[in-house]
């Protein structure tokens, strides 16, 4: 096979696989968006007429509103919890050496290797036992704790990657200039890790917002959007669900785009410094 044919075949395979992957990843999402605009009460293809009637129906019956409120609350609190704890843990992972560090690393990373449903089940058992002793039943608080356990390993890894590229002589320079430990952290460390922390927070929000497995196990009688949709489609595919799905995509999409803009802005700054230093 000559050189040029080989290159061409490789290009077709490589570009083709990326294009195919993107189509594959968006099949269910675009299907839902398309069906949300159908006029029919049956979710079958081809879609005959387009209308907004199911959005109207959605806002008329409002069953989903409590679930929406719960999801927003859970996502907000879990994001805060897992971003702060994940950042602190990442600093300990990357910057410190201490006794039992391996143990600490193992327990903060292991949930990433657990299927979510098993995490949920294991925690449910514990919360039920605890609930018997302390007289409470699973609800939003247990969901938030569960999301924390599930999400912290992700935020930890994202912030740790940012710390990996961090030049710690900048901190020495600040100390040398007369900064206290707290001033070094606030003036230098935090601003420079900020892009990673923001990405971690966005990741945390989306993981919590779209989480089904753990919420399903730990929410007791409370409903979040994913569990609300699950119980809905288990009963039968009502055409309001595609509309609901499309609505939940919007805030997530806006958040991702905004976060990427921020990240790129910050990365440009830092990359330019590295660049000029090498020259």
């Amino acid at each position: 096979m000559d050189h040029r044919t080989e290159s061409r075949i490789a290009d077709v395979i490589l570009y083709g696989s990326v294009a195919a992957m993107l189509v594959f990843f968006y099949i269910p999402i675009l299907t839902l968006v398309a069906f949300s605009f159908t006029d029919s009460r049956f979710l079958s293809f081809p879609i005959e007429d387009f209308s907004l009637r199911w959005y109207g129906a959605l806002f008329e019956n409002r069953d989903f509103l409590p679930a929406l409120g719960n999801s927003a609350l859970v996502a907000a609190v879990s994001t805060l919890l897992s971003t702060i704890l994940g950042t602190a843990a990442a600093l300990a992972w990357m910057r410190f050496r201490f006794r039992f560090q391996r143990v600490f690393q193992a327990v903060t990373f292991a949930p990433l290797l657990f299927p979510q449903l098993l995490l949920g089940v294991v925690m449910l058992l514990w919360f039920s036992v605890l609930g018997n002793w302390l007289d409470f039943s699973p609800g939003l608080v247990t969901v938030i704790l569960g999301h924390g356990v599930y999400i912290i390993p992700f935020t930890l890894v994202i912030v740790a990657v940012q710390i990996h590229g961090f030049d710690d002589t900048l901190e020495d320079a600040a100390r040398d200039a007369g900064a206290t430990r707290w001033q070094v952290f606030r003036e230098i460390t935090l601003p420079l890790l900020w892009p990673g922390i923001v990405s971690a927070a966005v990741f945390a929000f989306l993981l919590s917002w779209g989480n089904f497995y753990i919420s399903y196990s730990l929410s007791g009688t409370a409903r979040t959007l994913p569990t609300f949709v699950f119980s809905g489609i288990a009963v039968g595919s009502s055409p309001i669900y595609p509309a609901l799905a499309t609505l939940t995509f919007v805030p997530a999409l806006l958040l991702v785009v905004a976060a990427d803009g921020f990240r790129r802005h910050a990365a440009k700054r830092n990359r330019m410094v590295l660049h000029t230093e090498e020259n």
Binding site: Y26, I27, P28, I29, L225, S237, A245, A252
Partner: peptide
Amino acid sequence: LIVFAFLTDAVLKTFGWVL
């Protein structure tokens, strides 16, 4: 694009596949 699809609600995506 990958991250967004990855982080989208698993139930909704599964439902989308059913449709």
